[in-house]
């Protein structure tokens, strides 16, 4: 099966499976039997988590075909970004007053946290790069001692999985600004879904909607656009001479 197709099929199947299980438990068998009542937000959250983890699962087999060079580069990039992510927590705390204006607007600085899962695929251009880099960056951030703890690892996996779907949808061939911005936006949706599960289930729906919009925009700009800037900056530095990204820019010249 084609690599990109497998990612998408796995994503779809796992997402559909999770949705059907929730539907059966909450609607068909109902609150009286299973004690679960239907909630459209929960349904969407579970389905998106299923889609993202399905994408990560589908791409897992590809990892055995990576070259050593790509694996080492992904891990090192992830480590640097993981430490930057930990530092970004400070910005996140400084941005707190934004929430006093309109609750949820603070999430417009969230997009920075998707960078690892966008820069790595932009450079390495292999199936699985988004999932691996974002998850490893989350691992580094977790082990360095972030306040969000183990949930980061799940966040990283889901954010990477969502970005992976976009790269797969383009057949792992197109790595332009629009691809990166879409991938960032998708990661933004994934991030809110995980945060809802762990932290925000008690918040008002309108606050959640503002958060969702803020994260999609922020993922596209602070994630996607910035990833492109960083990637192109690295090409100019000449360090990426042996990677696909530099070959492409040489062809242009």
């Amino acid at each position: 099966m084609k690599k990109s197709l497998r990612t998408l099929v796995y994503a779809f199947l796992v997402g559909a499976f999770v949705f059907i299980v929730y539907y059966v438990a909450a609607v068909v068998r109902g609150p009286k039997v299973e004690g679960v009542s239907w909630n459209p937000i929960v349904a969407a959250v579970l389905t998106i988590m299923g889609i993202a983890s399905g994408a990560a699962w589908g791409v897992g087999g590809e990892l055995r075909r990576w070259k050593t060079r790509d694996a080492i580069l992904a891990a090192n990039l992830a480590l640097v970004f993981g430490l930057l992510f930990l530092g970004w927590t400070m910005i996140w705390d400084l941005a707190k007053p934004l929430n006093a204006l309109i609750p949820g607007v603070r999430d417009s600085v969230y997009g920075f946290w998707f960078l690892a899962g966008l820069v790595a695929p932009y450079i390495i251009r292999k199936p699985g790069a988004a999932v691996v880099a974002e998850t490893l960056a989350a691992l580094a951030e977790w082990l360095a001692g972030s306040q969000w703890g183990f949930t980061l690892l799940i966040s990283g996996l889901i954010q990477g999985g969502m970005a992976e779907i976009i790269f797969a949808a383009y057949g792992y061939r197109r790595y332009k600004l629009d691809t990166l911005m879409l991938a960032g936006a998708a990661a933004g949706i994934g991030s809110l879904v995980v945060d809802y599960f762990f932290w925000y289930a008690q918040l008002k729906p309108d606050v959640l909607l503002i958060m969702l919009i803020a994260r999609i925009i922020s993922g596209a700009i602070l994630g996607g656009w910035l990833a492109k800037v960083i990637g192109d900056g690295l090409v100019h530095s000449g360090a990426l001479g042996n990677f696909p990204i530099a070959r492409e820019s040489r062809e242009k010249i």
Binding site: R69, I72, L73, A75, N76, L77, V80, I123, I230, L234, S237, G238, A239, L240, N242
Partner: peptide, 9 residues
Amino acid sequence: LANAIRKSE
């Protein structure tokens, strides 16, 4: 980051 890439390679 450029040095990270060179080192990795």
